[in-house]
Amino acid sequence: MGRYILKRIGYMCITFYVVITLTFLSMKMLPGTPFQNPKLTPTQINQLKHYYGLDQPIAVQYVKYMWNLLHGDMGGSFQFGNESVTALLMNKFPVSLDLGLEAIILGAVIGLLLGIIAGLHHGKAMDWSTMIFAAIGTSIPSFIFAGVLQYFLGVYVRAFPVAGWNGPSYHFLPVVSLAVGVVAEIALFMRTEMVEVINQDYIVTAQAKGLSRFTVVYKHAIRNALIPVVTILGPLTAAIITGSLVIENIFGIPGIGSQYVSSIVTNDYPMIMGTTELYAGLFILSIFVVDILYGVIDPRIRVSGGQA
């Protein structure tokens, strides 16, 4: 296990390093310029370039960028009067984290419940309706749900605020729009696992021992079915990040997602790089945690040499 974790950490570092380098290089290959103000004279533009260090050779810029990055300094944002990118991200990240976590927790709770109920009623109406809901929920993108919810519950019924992030009532629409996909994904996965587990010999044994239905389902079936569900947490994190970019924009939430989109539009290089690295870091970390967690929960994987 120890060797396995070390290997995973090694990969994690290499991948993260590749991401940083790729982001850096692609920013240098970008066709646009951040200095778009037509009033700027060529001399002023040169001065600005010099000020931001953009006139130095790429290799020098790269080493400097990496060195600063190691000290937690990602440079100054072009669009916010040179405000530190690190500080901007630190400011806005909690909002996005809040949104993402709420969506994952809500999605996981409802998804697991639906999946368990559907799995226990395999082939019955409850099962079919869950399957239909899941097929729709996994297919339709979150921004469509967001639009429908925003229009009907926000504009038409006026039950919830249309946009903003000023209190609990503001959380409902964006969190639900993000969570629908999570619910569908987890419900589908959990249902398959439940159906599989219920047909296992140890369930028959438990029933033969005369245990109550509740004990069989709760202690034997659900616990075993839950293990593989951990594996989809990695892809789900990626989906939540992707979704949050759009959802934050639609609902005007001041998180890093809407920030990212606006920095793409304005060619704010340091901000794009910082946010990209943050997203990549989150994703890589979540994959790592899931791998390790899976090994810890399911001893069968540890024994077979960590081949998750």
Partner: peptide, 21 residues
Amino acid sequence: MEIISGIPNLVWIILLILVMK
């Protein structure tokens, strides 16, 4: 491949489009 797939596809897609217009 492990390294390529370790980078979220969102990052790949956005970076590539930024570079290529």
